[in-house]
Amino acid sequence: MQLLETKELTKKFKNYVAVDHLNLTINKGQLVALLGHNGAGKSTTISMLIGLIQPTSGNIEFEGLKVNESKYRRKLGVVFQNSVLDNNLTVKQNIDIRANMYKNLDSSFKNKILNDLELSSILNQRYKTLSGGQRRRVDIARSLLNKPEILFLDEPSTGLDIQSRNKIWEFLNNLRKSIGLTIILTTHYLEEAEDADFVYVIDKGKLVEGDTVDNLKNKYAKDTLTLYSDHLKNIKDNLNQKIVEETENSISINPEDNNEAINILSKFKPLITTFEYQRGSMDDIFIALTGKEVK
């Protein structure tokens, strides 16, 4: 079910086009990743979608609502790249200030969020004394108090250790399942986009490609099978696949799928000493589409 849509969304700053006629469709319950290098237009797009800045042209619609309507904004939760919480207030004070902005707040849902994010034990600590992972969990809790339909995450994991990132994503994925939360994500960690339902790649403000992860991998990210052997000539003489890389004791090919890789391994088992099988990744997709790595 379609939840949010942009049509020809454009943002210009004087002569600079930050977002260029962007068309996005976000379906309910999806995790949608917006990928692009620094300056690609991701954060500007997010800022327009949440009503922080106005588009130069184009439209944004969310269940028939316009971005400047208060009912639209009440359906959103936002975790900004840089926290907006007060460093000198405690976690509880920061949470309560936000909670008091909403009428008929679901207190049981609020308490569940705090418990699931393991914040109950640090409610009386000042925000500035928290670790990076703790701060980010507080940011996320604050953004979810109104039980939004869409949660915007703008580079939520930057600078966090792997344990903190995993804990945050475990919580968010559970929430997606329990309440059907839709998440729009921008990230520098391309592995976070592996679990996305849909990925949009943006470059210089333009939409380069939009598709599922599986479809993008099929188009742009080849799996690589590397065979190590003391009998490479014998293997090459009987190999039907194109060799993409060769060293003194190895050859690499791009099998069509897992089955072909298994068949090749079975065929040459007596001749190979070992092998490596590397799946195509989001990094491969990104480089294929933009010509550069994420930095």
Score class of each variant (00 low, 15 high):
1 M>C: 03
4 L>D: 09
8 E>S: 15
13 F>S: 05
15 N>A: 08
22 L>C: 01
22 L>M: 07
26 I>M: 04
27 N>D: 14
28 K>M: 01
31 L>P: 00
40 A>W: 12
42 K>T: 10
43 S>P: 01
48 M>E: 10
48 M>N: 11
50 I>G: 10
52 L>V: 12
54 Q>C: 02
54 Q>K: 15
55 P>R: 08
61 E>R: 13
62 F>M: 15
64 G>L: 04
64 G>T: 07
64 G>C: 05
67 V>P: 01
68 N>E: 15
68 N>T: 13
69 E>D: 15
73 R>T: 06
80 F>R: 11
88 N>G: 07
89 L>I: 01
89 L>Q: 13
90 T>P: 01
104 N>Y: 05
105 L>T: 06
109 F>L: 09
112 K>Y: 14
114 L>N: 08
116 D>N: 15
116 D>T: 11
120 S>A: 13
122 I>N: 08
126 R>E: 13
131 S>Y: 11
133 G>C: 07
133 G>K: 07
135 R>Y: 04
136 R>L: 03
136 R>Q: 14
141 A>G: 05
146 N>D: 04
150 I>N: 05
153 L>W: 04
154 D>E: 12
155 E>C: 10
156 P>V: 08
158 T>I: 14
159 G>H: 06
161 D>V: 05
165 R>H: 04
165 R>I: 14
169 W>T: 08
171 F>K: 12
175 L>N: 02
178 S>V: 12
179 I>E: 08
186 T>R: 09
188 H>V: 02
194 E>S: 10
199 V>C: 05
204 K>P: 00
207 L>N: 08
212 T>D: 04
214 D>A: 14
224 T>H: 13
228 Y>N: 07
229 S>Y: 00
230 D>I: 02
232 L>D: 04
233 K>C: 00
234 N>E: 15
235 I>W: 07
237 D>L: 12
239 L>T: 13
239 L>Y: 12
241 Q>Y: 03
242 K>I: 08
243 I>T: 06
247 T>H: 10
248 E>M: 06
257 D>S: 11
257 D>P: 02
257 D>H: 07
260 E>H: 07
261 A>Q: 03
262 I>Q: 12
262 I>D: 09
266 S>P: 00
280 G>E: 04
287 I>E: 09
292 K>A: 05
295 K>Y: 14
